[in-house]
């Protein structure tokens, strides 16, 4: 092929690329850019949502980094949550997805079942979990009592409240499972056939075929898990309200307090932008590492 042909192809590809991405680019400019830019602007103002924002320069950021008493606990609690809940969720959902990918009796039923918690109303979920985690009557502690173990006050003990919320999160892995399941369907059967000829056992097959082949999905769930976990809010908001002793005072809860308790939207926006920078930094590192470990079918990048 002549290089001029290659140039035209390149240019055609770039043009097509921009055109295909155009819906999102337009949508971003029209629907997303303004709200995001506004919140960035608010972060340099005092804004109580009632009168116009008032420019105060870096005062919000300065206050957050110097005298805000919830900022550091908020960051630490959130990092703790991210560090434990993301890997745990990934492992659990991968395990369940592999199980659900079997041809076995009642598999359609099982698959629907694992998705059930995702369709149950959140209020019901909260009530139910309060009961499950109850120190005395809760299912968990009653089960532990059978084993002769005295279970802790899951949500009422500052040492256990975060692990409890992380455990609770496991119950909503249905969405991640579905993604893994879809990904497992994409692994070509021919690869397993080849492995079989080489005499590979199930563990080796999983490590050397399944894992690399679904690595793009693992990577996706990892990145989305991180982004989601950094913004953990609902469980803590409903179940613990940040307590006991601020042990579940996650960053998003701090933002919520500033915005809707203290009616300081400008300050809350500054907090949110600091969060964005933190998530972005972590995500970029993961993206960089991902390129090394993720196996894509394409050869271009």
């Amino acid at each position: 092929m002549r290089w001029t042909d290659r140039m035209t192809m390149r240019r055609k590809e770039a043009l097509a690329g921009v055109l295909f991405a155009l819906p999102w680019i337009l949508g971003f400019l029209v629907f997303t850019l303004y709200p995001i830019a506004s919140s960035f602007y608010y972060s340099f103002t005092r804004y109580n949502m009632r009168s116009a924002p008032l420019w105060i320069g870096l005062a919000n950021y300065e206050t957050i980094f110097t005298t805000d008493s919830l900022f550091v606990p908020g960051v630490l609690n959130t990092l703790y949550f991210v560090a434990f809940s993301v890997p745990l969720n990934l492992a659990a959902s991968l395990l369940i997805a592999v199980l659900l990918n079997n041809r076995t009796f009642g598999i359609r039923f099982y698959r629907t079942l694992f998705y059930l918690p995702n369709v149950v109303s959140i209020v019901a979920v909260a009530l139910l979990w309060q009961w499950i985690l109850d120190p005395t009557f809760g299912l968990i502690n009653q089960a532990l009592a059978l084993l002769g173990v005295e279970g802790p006050g899951w949500l009422t003990d500052a040492a256990w409240s975060k692990p409890s919320l992380i455990l609770m999160g496991l119950w909503g892995v249905g969405g991640t499972v579905v993604i893994f399941l879809a990904s497992l369907q994409d692994v070509p059967a021919s690869l397993y056939d080849a492995a079989l000829i080489d005499g590979a056992g199930p563990v080796r097959k999983f490590r050397h075929i399944t894992l690399p082949m679904i690595s793009p999905a693992i990577f996706f769930n990892l990145v989305m898990g991180i982004i989601g976990a950094f913004q953990v809010f609902t469980q803590a908001f409903i179940m613990t309200g940040g307590g006991p002793s601020d042990s579940t005072m996650f960053y998003a809860l701090v933002i919520y307090r500033k915005a809707f308790w203290d009616i300081q939207m400008g300050y809350a926006s500054a907090l949110a932008w600091i969060l964005l920078v933190m998530i972005l930094a972590v995500t970029l590192v993961v993206l960089k590492l991902g390129n090394r470990f993720v196996f894509y079918g394409d050869t271009q990048s």
Binding site: I36, Q231, F233, I255, Y256, A259, F260, A272, I279, T283
Partner: peptide, 10 residues
């Protein structure tokens, strides 16, 4: 990064 801002502030 459009996923990284909590909904409350936008």
């Amino acid at each position: 990064s459009t996923l990284m801002l909590p909904g409350q502030v936008i």
